[in-house]
Design a protein around this nucleic acid. Sequence first.
DNA 1: TTTACTATAGAACAAAATGTTCGGTATCTC
DNA 2: GAGATACCGAACATTTTGTTCTATAGTAAA
Lengths: 182, 182
Amino acid sequence: MDRRQRKTRDAIFKAFIELLSHKDFASITVGEIIERADIGRATFYAHFETKDYLLKELCEELFCHLFDTDKGEKGHHHIFSCDANDSLFLHLFKHIAKNDNQLLELLSCENNQLFLRYFKSQLLTLVDSNLETLKKEKYDELPHDFLVNHIASTFVETVKWWADDKCRLSPEQITNCFLSVI
Amino acid sequence: MDRRQRKTRDAIFKAFIELLSHKDFASITVGEIIERADIGRATFYAHFETKDYLLKELCEELFCHLFDTDKGEKGHHHIFSCDANDSLFLHLFKHIAKNDNQLLELLSCENNQLFLRYFKSQLLTLVDSNLETLKKEKYDELPHDFLVNHIASTFVETVKWWADDKCRLSPEQITNCFLSVI
DNA sequence: TTTACTATAGAACAAAATGTTCGGTATCTC
DNA sequence: GAGATACCGAACATTTTGTTCTATAGTAAA
């Protein structure tokens, strides 16, 4: 990718993240973004069709990396079938704690539901395909979809609570909390 | 309240709900609302400062009633202290199932997060003040806030799943699902 | 270095949405 | 019936959106 394109794209993302972390998504205007990113109006629209597409691409950049890693490395995928079936979640908590791309700020700011929704949709497929190894006996009579949704939701809500709490608990502690209630 | 005011207010809410159930909140314009409600532009702004305040008042109208009932009638408040500590949740599911004000449609449509966020904030205070009676032994070592958040979140997510599923399960069945995972 | 290509700046523009104002009419309250 | 109040509807300024254009500057390949 052209260096100019890359710089512009990064400037837009940076400005957008800064704005997101202290004001409502709906009230952010394209004018504000380009002013803060210090680029021309036409340039913005050359990169992103609308403000919503900008958000979508930001989500992909934030989470694809996270889930790609987990799917790519075989070392992670097997964890469901071995006895240490908590390591995926611990791994995710650690990953989030590293706070690449201000991920943590975005997960605890006013606009967090924008990102958590995207996060959950990714998580649902992951949990769905690995439910059997997570299942406990006491859950036998519950609908499959309900259980998948419950586990993914609980993880997302735990992440949200943890981020709101400024990550006072360590990844290991919050993983234990999560596993206790699952 | 003046009959004229009431009619206008109802027409606005009705139009707004119809629009919410088949298009995104952000893309709904004041122009669309007043056209569908068949009222004048100035009249809309005489009732609601902005589209966001309209949403806020709709939420209050939908949920205050629900929670007021539970707080008002003494017959509900005691349930935490008696042995049948599931009846509050069952009661809430039944209430939602009655589907006053298209509550169910709003909880399962594209815009459901708008309502579920409000719902959760109400629920948090309710759960917080009654946590002791809900608590199980195995949860002893978990942070108080975490538990409160977990129970409220799980209830909200269960309601969402149930509404998305067109309420195929009865209030009793979904209450059991909820209590099983709590 | 020269040449062709492409991204950007900056300004101008139309279209759409927001929120306000005002005079006239209908409806409610007393 | 009289005064108060809500509504209509049209006009209006303002803001935001998304497009179009030309000139300029950075990039990549010869």
